[in-house]
């Protein structure tokens, strides 16, 4: 069942526009050199930070269509009737969300590195840090999407909910994105593991609570 669910959600994400988060990501990293100025030293110093902020916001972009429509349309109820647990649904949605945005985002890091004057070493570290961190971003987005599903102005509320939870990931992720950040990478992996392991339970409880 979980395979079918992942395929369905991935298909829906592709139809709804999988290019949107990546286009948003590229938009942000394109605007930064214009705002900060073309000084290569400054750009390469703030580059990883910009990439991470843009990645976080890009992951959050489809938050409103991850859980809300399925709750409104009764799909989550029908899945419950077939004995699929809410946690399983959340895991499927996390995997599908990650697959829809993360690989494209990693590809988009190459033009981003050029725009932000990041060198090869920095780019490599950023790619590894994002590879570790994007599953946590996907998990966090699904958890927050479940918590805000069915509420008015869910997207803006989701942004505020994500902020405190994403800060540790952001700090260690940016730390791991500069050369020699092995310690930060380990801490980032620990935070990411916590978010990925905890999110299905948060999302499951939120979906059940939305039903009553």
């Amino acid at each position: 069942m979980i395979g079918t669910l992942i395929r369905r959600d991935l298909g829906r994400a592709l139809v709804a526009g999988a290019w949107l988060p990546v286009a948003f990501f590229l938009l942000v990293v394109t605007l930064v050199p214009f705002a900060v100025g073309p000084d290569a030293r400054i750009l390469s110093r703030i580059g990883p930070g910009i990439v991470w902020v843009a990645a976080l916001l890009a992951a959050l972009l489809p938050v409103e269509r991850l859980i809300g429509p399925d709750l409104d349309e009764g799909v989550l109820d029908q899945l419950a009737l077939r004995g699929v647990s809410e946690e399983m649904v959340a895991i499927a949605k996390m995997v599908a969300h990650w697959a829809a945005f993360a690989p494209l985002l990693l590809l988009a890091c190459f033009p981003a590195a050029a725009l932000l004057s990041m060198d090869g070493e920095q780019l490599g570290a950023t790619l590894i840090a994002l590879l570790v961190g994007t599953p946590a971003l996907a998990a966090l987005t699904v958890a927050v999407a479940s918590l805000t599903a069915g509420l008015p102005r869910a997207a803006s509320l989701a942004g505020m909910l994500v902020l405190p939870l994403a800060v540790p990931l952001l700090i260690f992720g940016v730390g791991a994105s500069s050369a020699g950040g092995v310690g930060a990478l380990k801490l980032e992996a620990a935070v990411a593991l916590l978010l990925v392991a905890g999110s299905p339970f948060v999302a499951g409880a939120a979906i059940r609570a939305a039903r009553t």
Partner: peptide
């Protein structure tokens, strides 16, 4: 199997 007011079809 349940049919309520919601369609639950994509």
């Amino acid at each position: 199997a349940l049919a309520d007011e919601r369609l639950a079809l994509d």
